[in-house]
Amino acid sequence: MRQNKIKVLGITGGIGTGKSTVLDYIGKMYHARVIQADQAAHLLMEPGQVCYYKIVESFGSGILRGDQKIDREKMAAVVFSDKEKLKRLNQIVHPAVKEYIIAEIKRERGNGTVPFIVLEAALLIEDHYESICDEFWYVYADEDVRRQRLMQYRGYTAEKVKQVMKNQLRENVFRQHCQFVIDNSSNIVENTYEQIDRGLIEHEFL
């Protein structure tokens, strides 16, 4: 355990498990700093930011909107069916996101005004964020619950849900790498909150 430093809690889990519910609660209830890798990536792809010109140079101006911002839907269409292009995009974005997150953690530790930091990243395990985080927590939900949420709240088709889930880590891999599991399958959100409260106390984040 790192001494005299604000701890970093890594949150991960498959799509539709309800990670945003967990992050919202921890941020509001405990006043923790919440950092989301996806939001950092969006910021770094804005005009003038570190990833913008590299992406435009790699994929052409056809991915830009009228206001010269990157159209993420157009970009997704370009890389979705081409593994090499997706790999190239990831090689641009992922290291930049990690650098941004490390800098934000350093800044928060310098300020010393938050009790702890929560980092959410879909690729927390694959991108080896264990060097940054004190612990990984896995947000779990039953597959049927996830499927229902994605179709109801995101408008995914059954086929799209199947495709997205197929490309994600298996449950046993998440459990193997994480020190605590939050079961967010229940419709009663207080059940999830109770698990978070207990975990933060037992794992000494408070």
Rank of each mutant, 00 (worst) to 15 (best):
H42I: 07
A77F: 01
N172D: 11
R88P: 00
H94S: 05
Q68G: 01
I101S: 08
Q49E: 15
V118F: 12
V50D: 08
K54S: 11
V56L: 06
A40S: 08
A32R: 01
V145E: 15
G10N: 07
E104R: 04
H31S: 15
V189Q: 15
N184P: 01
D142Q: 11
S61W: 01
V22F: 02
G16F: 03
A41M: 01
Y30R: 11
T21H: 11
V181N: 09
T12G: 10
G14P: 03
D144A: 15
Y25W: 05
T192L: 13
K166P: 00
D144N: 10
I117H: 10
E120W: 11
V93G: 10
A40C: 14
G62W: 02
Y138S: 10
Q152K: 15
Q168V: 07
C178P: 02
A77V: 01
Y153I: 07
G155P: 00
H31M: 14
E46N: 04
G27N: 11
V8N: 13
Y52R: 05
A141V: 03
S58R: 08
N191C: 14
E84I: 08
I188K: 08
P115F: 08
Q36P: 02
A158E: 12
Q68P: 00
R2F: 08
E135I: 04
V22Y: 03
S61D: 15
T17C: 15
G48Q: 09
D71E: 06
E84D: 13
D183L: 06
I63T: 06
R88Y: 08
N111T: 04
M29W: 07
K87P: 04
A103E: 14
F180R: 12
M151N: 01
L9A: 12
C133R: 00
A103C: 07
V164L: 12
I11T: 10
G18I: 08
R147K: 14
R65A: 09
Q91M: 04
E120N: 12
D82S: 13
Y30M: 08
V139T: 03
G62T: 03
D197I: 04
K74W: 05
R88L: 11
